[in-house]
Design a protein around this nucleic acid. Structure first.
Lengths: 122, 122
DNA sequence: CTGCCTGTCCCCTGTTTACTATACGTGGAC
DNA sequence: GTCCACGTATAGTAAACAGGGGACAGGCAG
């Protein structure tokens, strides 16, 4: 039950038509069948497209890939690797981040960037 | 190809025997067949057990669930939800964390805990 | 009215996931 | 010796995943 949010299909359709792509044309560019794309846009699929297709959609539509992944109910593919590089510390940290606002997360991100500078100097 | 690290099986077997469980007994407690558990311990499976089974194993063996998840090549099940709660900020932050040491991550974790206090006060 | 393009509907398909059943060889206790 | 528990190799499988094919109704340009 990796059910994509119902908004995923609607979002896709709106952006696609806004870009002037027909369903068939867009399906071809993404590399899926018109049938399947129609299903996806109507939210009639139980599982969202694969990561590479979502990435292509984001590229073609000029939207944030992360946003599209989230709407699809998927996690961007590079994140699991990052987490597993520190199997103890990363999960603990992530749980500490739960509930924080985007602004606070941004602050921590800047902080992390500074820490990384120190690493690079050593 | 969600291949579990080869060390996963070895680790499991060592901890299981150390606890004095036979393969059949442990399999029963975890809720899988002896056959499957044998395969897992030999690293002969292409896909690791499901999250709930890994959790049970960790409980029975008295080990960190996060560590076991990492060895199995899985991401702890609560993390995707946390990420998707902030679909833009979380991925960006995680990428900024890439390559940091456990000590640095711990620092950020403490920092996050402080920020959370502020949230709770508001 | 005939193409042609639009999206949609029903049904079908191969692949992967996460296992299970059955049968088997081995070694010790009685 | 035979009974039992140990772990194991071979084979198979239900369900989910990620789609695809072909026919179809509706609009509308020439």
């Amino acid at each position: 039950m990796t059910a994509p949010k119902p908004k995923f299909g609607a979002f896709l359709r709106e952006r696609r038509t806004a870009k002037g792509y027909s369903l068939r044309r867009f399906a071809e560019l993404v590399g899926v069948s018109p049938t399947y794309l129609s299903h996806v846009e109507q939210g009639k699929v139980d599982s969202p497209p694969t990561a590479d297709r979502i990435q292509k959609m984001a590229d073609l539509l000029g939207t944030s890939a992360d946003e599209l992944f989230a709407l699809a109910g998927r996690v961007p593919e590079d994140l699991p690797k990052i987490i597993q590089s520190q199997p103890e510390a990363m999960p603990a940290l992530l749980r500490a981040l739960k509930g924080l606002t985007p602004e606070q997360l941004k602050k921590l991100q800047d902080h992390a960037a500074k820490l990384r500078m120190e690493v690079d100097r050593s």
